[in-house]
Simulated assay, not measured.
Amino acid sequence: MKDLKQACVAVVTGASRGAGRGIALALGAAGATVYVTGRTEQEGSAPLPGTIHATARDIDALGGRGIAVACDHGDDAQVAALFRRVREEAGRLDILVNNATFLHDELIMPGPFWQKPLEMTGILDVGLRSGYVASWHAAPMMIAQGRGLIVFTSSFGANCYMHGPAYGAQKAGIDKFAHDMAVDLRPHGVAAVSLWMGPLRTARTMQVWEKHPDKYASFAPVAETPEFTGRIVDALYRDAALMDKSGKVLICAEAALEYGIVDDEGVQPPSYREVLGGPPGVHPAIVE
């Protein structure tokens, strides 16, 4: 068995499927030990395919070490137990990817917010608050070792209307988490960034694209794989100039060009800055 204390140790939340799974796989392929969290333990128990155990096994097959941990990120006690386990087993934490997010089935349906279920606000619990809680637990471990990276998975919806106000507030909120946490973490050599992913090629989006092929035909061929984001996270962590990027919102497609990263089959995903806007400026003032 690989000595956990000798490998880069990462926690990727919400990694049963989708973006989290792809990020976890990419980090595993780079040799990391990855704690894979999520609620799905048995295939078929969720509407979409994927489990934390399947992700962990696939990480092992790629040369990393996958450790599945069942965790509901809406339950603070379960989150505390997760990070206690990481501390006891690995003794360190190098990367935290805050990806767990509540996605309501009606999120992408047309219509104003008051005509959609009030449960849409669940994304402000698992998606926004959950990222704060996980980072709260991760920060002391990273500070103790003098280096670390906290990542929030975000999107262009932080700065344009996308899927309604609950989704937009969650994305804008985690972008601000990255900025403000970076202020607190900077003296300790720990970085925090938010990554704007483009359209992702996941099981969820593929179902939508199959139902509405004309609507998504223009960008489906250049949609990003979830692993693409994971390769960027790995490149960021290995970047000697990481602290220069701390507190920033980075567009994955643009960061990929900087690091020389291409997606599967040689695809270079485009940035949607011109059509959806870029990260808004943040004032450098600090009021304590």
Rank of each mutant, 00 (worst) to 15 (best):
V183L: 15
A285N: 08
A68C: 06
R84F: 01
L250K: 03
A54D: 15
S194C: 07
C160T: 15
H212A: 12
R39V: 11
L236C: 10
D72Y: 04
L257A: 13
I143T: 12
R85P: 07
N99E: 10
G260T: 07
N98F: 03
G50F: 10
A30R: 06
V282S: 11
D76G: 00
P279G: 10
P213E: 06
P280L: 12
A68M: 08
M141W: 04
F156W: 14
G164C: 14
G278Y: 04
A169G: 10
Y259E: 07
P284S: 07
L124Y: 10
V287G: 06
R231P: 01
G63W: 05
L96N: 01
A30V: 04
G50Y: 11
A144E: 15
L93P: 02
Y167C: 12
V9M: 02
N98G: 09
V267F: 10
V262T: 15
L103E: 09
G28I: 11
G63H: 08
D125C: 04
A30G: 05
A81D: 14
G22M: 07
C252M: 09
T40S: 12
A255Q: 06
P112M: 11
R17C: 05
V275L: 10
H163I: 11
V233W: 00
L128K: 03
G91K: 05
A240I: 05
T225N: 03
C8T: 15
V249M: 09
V208P: 00
W136H: 14
Q115F: 03
L27K: 02
M162V: 12
V9N: 01
R204P: 00
P284L: 06
L257I: 05
L107R: 10
N99V: 12
F177H: 04
S246T: 15
G146Q: 09
D72P: 06
K211Q: 13
M197D: 02
A255E: 12
H179G: 00
D3C: 08
V183R: 14
I123T: 15
E119W: 10
A80Y: 07
L200G: 01
L250H: 10
D244L: 13
V262W: 08
V275P: 01
T37R: 04
P47F: 06
F83A: 01
D214C: 03
T229Q: 05
A217Q: 11
H137R: 09
D125T: 12
S135A: 15
A68E: 09
V151N: 05
D75H: 07
H73V: 02
T229F: 03
V36A: 02
P221S: 07
E89V: 11
L257D: 13
P284M: 10
V233S: 01
